[in-house]
């Protein structure tokens, strides 16, 4: 199911890094954070599988917008932060 622009989402709070060798394109600082779908960018083979030359399912990739001021305590963060995130890292907020 395609996520429409404006949909509120949460990035999964997951740490595959603790489970063994992996290659993850979701930065640590957005995991567990809420954001807004800006737009669907396209569909691409999952890099987490490509990195190990495994068959890679095609996944939707979204631009997700965050308001990052609370991410870091001192408050010098950007007004908006936009990150490319694959669908399997997103859940309903």
């Amino acid at each position: 199911m395609m996520l429409a622009p404006g949909t509120r989402v949460r990035v999964k709070l997951d740490w595959p890094e603790l489970r063994g060798p992996c290659h993850i394109r979701t930065p640590h600082y957005v995991r567990g954070e809420e954001g807004t779908i800006e737009r669907h960018l396209g569909d691409f083979p999952n890099p987490e599988d490509l990195a190990f030359a495994r068959p890679a399912p095609i996944r939707a990739l979204y631009h997700v917008r965050f308001a990052p001021k609370p991410f870091w305590p001192e408050g010098a963060a950007p007004d908006e932060l936009v990150v490319e995130i694959f669908e399997h890292w997103l859940e309903a907020a």
Partner: peptide
């Protein structure tokens, strides 16, 4: 957070 070392944002 248990980030990987190349994951440098912030």
């Amino acid at each position: 957070l248990p980030r990987a070392m190349h994951d440098m944002g912030g």
